[in-house]
Structures are given as structure tokens and as C-alpha cells.
Design a binder for these strands. Sequence first.
DNA 1: CGTTTAGTTGACCGTGCTCAAGGGGCGTGG
DNA 2: CCACGCCCCTTGAGCACGGTCAACTAAACG
Lengths: 247, 247
Amino acid sequence: MNITRGIGIQTDPAIRRLSAFRPINEVTTAALDRALRERVLRIDAGQDLIAEGDRPDRIRIVLSGWLARYKTLEDGRRQIVNFVLPGDSCDALAYLLPRQDHSISSLTAVMYSEIDPERLEVLMASDQMLAEAVLCEALANCSIQREWAVNIGRRMALERVAHLLCEIFERLRTVRLLLNGDSCGLPVTQTDLADATGLSVVHLNRTLQELRAAGLIVLRERILTICDLPALRNAGLFSPLYLHSAG
Amino acid sequence: MNITRGIGIQTDPAIRRLSAFRPINEVTTAALDRALRERVLRIDAGQDLIAEGDRPDRIRIVLSGWLARYKTLEDGRRQIVNFVLPGDSCDALAYLLPRQDHSISSLTAVMYSEIDPERLEVLMASDQMLAEAVLCEALANCSIQREWAVNIGRRMALERVAHLLCEIFERLRTVRLLLNGDSCGLPVTQTDLADATGLSVVHLNRTLQELRAAGLIVLRERILTICDLPALRNAGLFSPLYLHSAG
DNA sequence: CGTTTAGTTGACCGTGCTCAAGGGGCGTGG
DNA sequence: CCACGCCCCTTGAGCACGGTCAACTAAACG
């Protein structure tokens, strides 16, 4: 984990993410951009950025790379409860609670900004739109959480995986991270996808193959191509309202 | 749905719930109490209080009775994503987003307060502790949501039901709604519990019987008695950290 | 009394899990 | 250069957890 200063850092995803909820004016955008560039850090894949039980102190905002919010049971069973994608915060408001109730680990190499809660509070106090956007981001994450409960609890394996892929595709679209109209990176293992859908790796693998065989997706070398988006949405009973991201 | 004014209304659960996160001083408590009593409404069991797609306008805070946050799939499959218990708000911050992303319906007769968002904002602006408590309540709900994903995704039926019962018991304890040290009301049908755990009604019924046979619980006439709390927690792999409610 | 709703039980079956083994890519080290 | 280990993906076989369907009981209610 090392601090990376200077040039070549893109803060766009974070600003795009917030802009999906409220218009952020130029002055605030610039101030936010400055705050984000002040402490940029990098970690490799497979590191715990936040562990359950930690005292939350700093706010972390992802600039690039994927992470997973997860919890494990005593015997090792793991459930990923959400993916944290570029532009997402690893909990902008968590510092209000005494402890972290879940862990967050990197699935890929990750670049992120650290901001002190006080710093963000100052920014929020100076621009009501920014304050609301930050709250909305938290609320939207909560909504995604609810949809995951539905996904895991009431959808069949095929529907579940289709739904998850649709969600990821949509979320990456709002931060402009599609590779072209119908592809995006999917830099996670099948074990990760299994833990996210509540399936076993074996069954997840077979389900992916079913989706491939049906001509809905191509998944090779960590690139997901959606061949027939309407059909995939249909297969996953996917409706994007819950993402609250206008686009 | 009718307005009930006047006496005999208990606002305690709502105030206790917020006090679990931040100390609320007497002045604010009194102001909050007044705000809560201004518009108290009542609905019967089985009514939708909020429907997916609604434009959120008013804030609703439950004074008595149970509700369920839920989503349904096109073909009728229903997943309850959380219970809303006395003292909980049906989303204090939802008005920031354009649409409700899920429905909330009453499982019992319910008494609740309606507050205008502006009214609450004024109260929050005048007392930082209250503002933080309201945010914490939303964050704690979000944490519960994550735990439900784990519950549904990675626990076996018996563990799942045990866990849910432990959670309900704890949550009712923080708002002082236990009937005595080891009992609480559980005014919902087995269909509701099935939809909350992602199980079928038939299997939920059998799982409850297993818990009864193991001497862990007694469940009769909508009263849940936990005979052996440590054993039930053990059976459900339950650890209350995620509730963030100090007690 | 008939109807409805909730709980219960039995029988059967299927989705998805477990266990196990093998293949391919890749980095490391002999 | 090849050997080895490691990680990830894949496939097969058997099985179990939990779903589905159906029927029956008991209580609540008009």
C-alpha cells in the first residue's frame, strides 16, 4: 500500500457517480477533485481494505479497480453482499457508527482516495447539492442491497446470475466504464461470482455456461460481452429502477 | 386509514430507537415528541403503506405494529427484505430519491406518525445529535440488509430461521417490547417468515418444528418464547454487532 | 354453516451442493 | 528449459436440502 501522488490519476468515476444523483456545479467539482487527489493510495488484489470490527475513521472512494463487501461465517462460508466499483465510496457515512459491520477486500489492484470525514463534511456544508448527492449514493447502495436479498432469496440460479451481470453492466455504464456498447471488464473469479450470488462455484460455472450456450453472453479473459441485452434482462427479471441512476 | 389524535399514543419506541445511537437531550425529545403526535395514522393489516414506484413525499415512523419491506417478481414470488418494527422509520431519507424502490405493507394493524421532510430537516438542523441519530438509523437498516443477504445466501434453513428469530428478539429488546425476559410478540404468518428467509412455507414450517423439537423455542398464538437464547444464537451463528444498537 | 385463512403432514422430485479428478495458464525456481 | 506448484476453470457422479403438489385440520368469521 503506497501513496501515489500527482498526475495520471482520474477522479472522473467518483464525480460521475455523484453527478448521477444531483447536478454538481463547477466550483464544487473542482474542490472535490482537489480533495480526492490529496491522498491517493494503491493496494494489490486480495487485500482487506476494511475489516469487520474496525473503527471507521477515514472515508475511502474508489478511483479504479473492484472490491467486494463481504461477511464470513465462523466456518469460512463467505457471502459477498455487494461489489464496490470505481466511483463508489466504501461508505461515506460509516464513521457515524462505532464499528464496521462488514469487511471490504480488493478483488483487483485498486486505486482509491482517502478523505477525512471532517473534510467531506466541510464540502457538504458548503454545497447542499453535494450533501444530497453523497446521501443519495448511500441510499442507492442500500437499495442495491435490498435487490440482492431478492436476487439471492427468490431467483433461480440462471436468473440470479443474469441479474447480477445486468446490474454490473448498468453500474459500469453510469461511470462510463463500458469497453464499448456491449462489453465491460469483469475482473473477478468465478468463486467471487458464486459468493455474490449465494451459489457454489461448481453450479455457478454451469450456470455461466448455460448463459453462453443460450447466446446471451460471451465471457472470456475477464471481459464480459452481452450479446443480447434485452434477452439477458429478461432472463434475469432485471429492471433498473432500483439503481436510481437516471441513465 | 384514519387520523387518530390525542391521548393514549406512545411515541416511546421511536425515541428509544434514536436514543440507541446518540443521546437525545430533553428539549429535542420534547420537540420530536410533539412532531410525532401531530399526524398519527392507523392502517389495518395487509395494506400497502408505500408501493414501489411511488414518489416519496412524507416520512413515516412506526409507533406500533409490524410492517414488511418487500419486492415481488413479475410471477408473484415475493421476498421480504426487512421487517419494519415499532420505532423504525419507513425511510427517513427516502425523499431524497425520486422513487420508492420497494414496497412496504402492514403485517398487523399499524399506528404511525407522518412528518414532512422539511419539518424533520428543521429539527435535525437544530440538534446535531438528532441529525446523526437519524442518519445512524438509516445506516443500521442498511447493515441489517447486508446481514440478510448473508443469511439468505449462506446459511442453511435451520440456521437461517434461528438467526432471524434472534434478530427480531434483539431489535424488539432495544425498543423495550419484550413481553418478559424471554418472550416477544411475533405477529406474522409463516408465509411471511418464509418470504423473509427465502424458504418455502412448507419447509419453513418444518424448520420451525425442528427448532421446537430441539427445545430452543416455543411459538404459539403469535408469541415467541426463546427457551435457550445462547443455544439459539449458536444455531443461527448470530452475533449482534451488525445491529449497532449498543445494548 | 359454509368459507376463508393458517398451520401441518406426506410423497415425490428437482435444483443445486459436495466430492473428486483433471486440464490449462502462469510464475517460480532448480 | 523444464519441473513444479498454484490458481482458476471445467466436468462427472451421487446425493441432499429444500421445493412442489396435494390433502387435511383447526380456528375465525360472517
